[in-house]
Amino acid sequence: MKEQLTKIIQEIEPEMISIRRQLHQYPELSGEEVHTSKLIQDKLKNYDIPFQTGFAGTGVLGIIKGNHSGKTVALRADMDALPITEMNQHSYCSTKSGKMHACGHDAHTAMLLAAGYTLNKLKEDIQGTVLLVFQPSEENAPVGGAKQMLEDGLFAEYTPDVIYGQHVWPSLPSGQVGVRDYEMMGASDRFRVVVKGKGGHASMPQDTTDAIIISNQMIASLQTIVSRNINPLEAAVLTIGKIEGGYRYNVIADQVTFEGTVRTYSSQVKERVKERLYQIINQTAAAYDGETEIEYLDGYPATINTPKWAGQVRLTASELFGEEAVPEVQPVLAGEDFSRFLEKYPGAFIWLGTQIQNADEQKPLHDPQFKLDEKALPKGAALLTKTALDTLVQLAEEE
């Protein structure tokens, strides 16, 4: 099986790289993935893989039925790009100013198509059904595309017993695989606060309520939530990323707006941070005779892997690439829309190492100079394929 799988992956590899580069040249933002979706549909037709559409606008569901009855495994890739202007220099740079695949979703789509091609060639060995989920709008936090796909009946006809997602990971050496039991990525909430005071001349502060002073006290106090209200053994981050206010040097501001994000793993910790955020902001405003408006957006939940299926990924990756290719990794507090699938179905989210050869020049995800090592993509496609096959075998043995 391993030799046969490798042979098919080698066969599809040039087309997989070509697909990735084509998507990279013509990126589409969340909700705009029309041409990306059409390319996926055209490839599925060419591969003789049935599919359904109409999920979250541009989402696609490929369906591969094996020659043997059994359970169902889903594999998911996201499709959308980011509102970033690319600053690389290579032959397939983005042709669209202000749009770039700076998070590797072009590679995710290409790898899933290659995995679909391979699985379809191996249908006689498949015990059950494999679903190929091409998801739009992953970058559109806190709304995302996963929830809308589910609401649109993504799994109405075929319900997965297990689901997997994979993400390129530039901090891992090329071809290595990162997967954890339980926490993999964090919940990603965001908030916006408008602080209202009373403006006036800088020389007559007694006649004003300074919104900048109030905001300053709020922002400083908000940093005590993690250090004084959360157990040090729990993870939480509260960051203020943007602040706007004031008119000129000699005017006391009547309004300030600041925005930030809250990242957690535990739902209990999240609710505690949220509770204290409201208390601090409202009570500080009252103490300084100001007013506030708070907009808190609950974002993606934490990405929590099912230990059993994370273990299956480790086993499959070790068999394919060797145990040294599956190092222990720490979770991160970045958000991921795949979490909404894992809330409903058991499964695991996987990191695929794509670090470029000169690691010192590697830029992180969401950077305008982000690059990845395309030599890792065949390994990613092989891992998705073999993990789906191995999982179906495991599910069959449990019946």
Results as ranks from 00 to 15, higher is better:
K2P: 01
E3C: 02
K7I: 06
E28F: 00
S30A: 14
V34Q: 02
S37N: 08
G66P: 10
N67R: 13
K71D: 10
V73Q: 06
V73W: 04
D78S: 08
D78V: 11
A81M: 12
L82S: 11
P83H: 14
P83D: 15
Q89P: 04
T95Y: 07
K99F: 12
L119P: 05
D125K: 04
Q127M: 06
G128C: 11
T129E: 11
Q135V: 07
E139Q: 09
N140D: 15
V143Q: 04
G145R: 03
Q148M: 13
E151M: 07
A156G: 01
G200Y: 11
G200F: 12
I213P: 02
I214K: 00
S221Y: 00
I225K: 14
S227L: 07
R248E: 15
Y249T: 13
F258S: 05
F258K: 03
V262R: 00
V262K: 02
V262C: 02
R263M: 08
R263Y: 08
E275W: 04
Y278P: 01
I280F: 06
A287F: 08
A287L: 10
Y300A: 04
P301C: 12
I304H: 03
P327F: 08
E336N: 03
F338L: 06
R340N: 14
F341Q: 09
G353A: 10
T354N: 03
P364K: 11
P368N: 12
F370D: 03
L384K: 12
K386H: 06
L392W: 00
